[in-house]
């Protein structure tokens, strides 16, 4: 207790904790740990991204029955494919969490392995999604077919675009960690990537439920 009283904000950081172990409150000048500020800022960005997705979801929900004589969701959705995509993305999210744990331990090998598995599973997800899109377009059910399909391609494609950008970011992170090691700024970027990847999985949960499962049931 006396140690804590003498150093209430843990400024000396003598406990040998990792990057997150030290006190996270403001120091005597009111400055927060940069990790907290970065994480909070990125969380705000993610929420704004989710708000953008909600507009696409609303558009889809409004247009879901406007098939203009074209196929409905029930006729074109392949739930087996969707289940596989869901599995890949969920395992990818888990692998990303494992990479985060390894990076806290500053274990280069396991961090890279975790990120590699994350990336491969994310890539598999993207391949399945693109195959589904190519298949639909080949059968004349592209985004120009009906308002329903326009909304479908916009919503699902926007999520796929996020996953694609995430994969590029992931590759950059792997290279940075490999070349520069666990610097404070690199670890912060990795934390942001983790949040981004988990948030994409949350959006996918809403997506497979509202678009695919509810769509196939109608």
């Amino acid at each position: 207790m006396s140690a804590a009283a003498a150093d209430p904000h843990n400024l000396r950081q003598g406990h040998g904790h990792g990057p997150r172990g030290n006190a996270a409150g403001p120091d005597e000048h009111g400055h927060f740990d940069k990790r907290i500020i970065t994480g909070y800022g990125f969380w705000i960005f993610l929420l704004s991204d989710i708000v953008m997705f909600s507009a696409l979801f609303a558009t889809y929900a409004v247009l879901a029955h406007a098939t203009a004589g074209g196929p409905s969701g029930k006729q074109i959705f392949d739930l087996q494919n969707v289940a596989l995509e869901t599995g890949f993305l969920l395992l990818s999210s888990f692998a990303c969490g494992m990479a985060a744990i390894a990076s806290e331990q500053k274990n280069l090998l396991w961090t890279e392995i975790g990120l590699l598995i994350t990336g491969l599973l994310g890539f598999a997800f993207l391949v399945l999604e693109l195959r589904e899109f190519a298949d639909l377009i080949a059968h004349g059910n592209g985004p120009t077919r009906s308002a329903f399909l326009s909304a479908f391609f916009t919503l699902v494609g926007c999520h796929g675009l996020h996953v694609g950008c995430g994969l590029l970011w992931l590759g950059t992170m792997m290279a940075q960690i490999w070349a520069k090691g666990f610097r404070a700024e690199t670890v912060r970027r990795l934390m942001c990537f983790n949040l981004f990847w988990h948030a994409l999985d949350i959006i996918w949960v809403a997506l497979f439920t509202i678009v695919y499962l509810l769509g196939a049931g109608q």
Binding site: A24, F32, G39, G97, M98, E104
Partner: peptide, 29 residues
């Protein structure tokens, strides 16, 4: 009250008291 951890902020994505275990982290995920 003199424990700074209980009044501080936490970044989203951060788990509680770090270090205490890789095992605990893996179990959570």
């Amino acid at each position: 009250m003199s424990d700074p951890h209980h009044q501080s902020d936490r970044a989203p994505g951060d788990e509680g008291e770090g270090q205490s275990g890789v095992a605990k982290g893996i179990l959570g995920y």
